[in-house]
């Protein structure tokens, strides 16, 4: 892929192994600004690893990653500065259990962006309000439902005003009746133009929201295209197999 300078994210020939296991085997991926990419694929195909590499939570073995043209995998790059620009939301929320919701949200702005506490809190309250969480601001995370916790985790990532948001199966740990509230938040973000890379098993949601769907298989992007094409007429046999299994599981 030849990089257009303004790509929000560009991944080139990314390899990653854990010991003898080659988890990512040459990933090439380009995401334009405001684009929403759905990353689908079987469990263990490397979705989480790819997202963690993009956020530099894993060291990579080979390849390069660019954020808005700047190589973040170059030697001597300040990883903390990169992470400010890339938000990630995890399957298991990973809220800080010893901090109130509002402190979870303002920790990054206060300690990393060095914003005065009052400003950070005012902004955090605006975000919490926008996602219907204002009255939870003073509570500890374990007093919240799973859906509320995940929405707080999204707000926490948004408070850093990232250029790119990575979402790793953010509804997989939720009771079915709580999935919709989280998906609606993501829909709203997409409508607002947030650039997102979303690993998900919610195929209906992926079809609705994504500009492009990437099918990850054994550490490679086997096939990618607009949702209509991937879901209706997948070219690759492995993609068809995967989608058939998903349909049998009643998730499409």
């Amino acid at each position: 892929m030849t990089g257009s300078a303004a790509a929000a994210l560009q991944v080139e020939g990314l390899w990653k192994s854990f010991g003898p296991l080659d988890v990512l085997q040459g990933i090439d991926l380009e995401v334009a600004e405001h684009e929403v990419i759905a990353l689908i694929g079987a469990s263990g195909s490397g979705k989480s690893t790819l997202l963690r590499c993009i956020n530099l939570l894993e060291t990579i073995d080979e390849g390069r990653i660019f954020i808005e043209g700047e190589e973040i995998t170059a030697k001597g790059v300040n990883v903390d500065r990169i992470r400010r620009r890339v938000g990630i939301v995890f399957q298991s929320f990973n809220l800080f259990p010893h901090m109130r919701v509002i402190d979870n949200v303002t920790l990054g702005p206060r300690k990393v962006l060095k914003r005065p506490a009052s400003d950070a809190e005012a902004d955090a309250m605006r975000l919490l309000e926008r996602f219907g969480l204002a009255e939870k601001a003073g509570q500890l995370p374990d007093r919240l439902s799973g859906g509320q916790q995940q929405r707080v985790a999204i707000v926490r990532a948004l408070a850093m005003q990232p250029d790119l948001l990575l979402l790793d199966e953010v509804t997989s740990a939720l009771d079915p009746e709580l999935v919709a509230e989280v998906l609606n938040v993501i829909r709203e973000l997409a409508a607002g133009g947030m650039t997102m890379l979303i690993a998900t098993h919610e195929m209906g949601f992926a079809r609705d929201i994504a500009n492009r769907v990437c099918f990850l298989d054994a550490g490679r992007i086997l096939e990618q295209g607009p949702p209509a094409q991937i879901f209706a007429e997948p070219r690759e046999a492995r993609t068809r197999q995967f989608l058939t299994r998903i349909i049998e599981a009643g998730r499409l």
Binding site: R52, N55, L57, D80, R81, R83, R84, V86, G87, I88, F90, S92, N94, L95, F96, L107, G108, K111, V112, L113, R156, A157, M160
Partner: peptide
């Protein structure tokens, strides 16, 4: 995962 969450917000390892 707690450290990962903190680092992903841009906090340094000591932070």
């Amino acid at each position: 995962s707690q450290t990962a969450a903190a680092r992903s917000l841009g906090l340094s390892q000591p932070q």
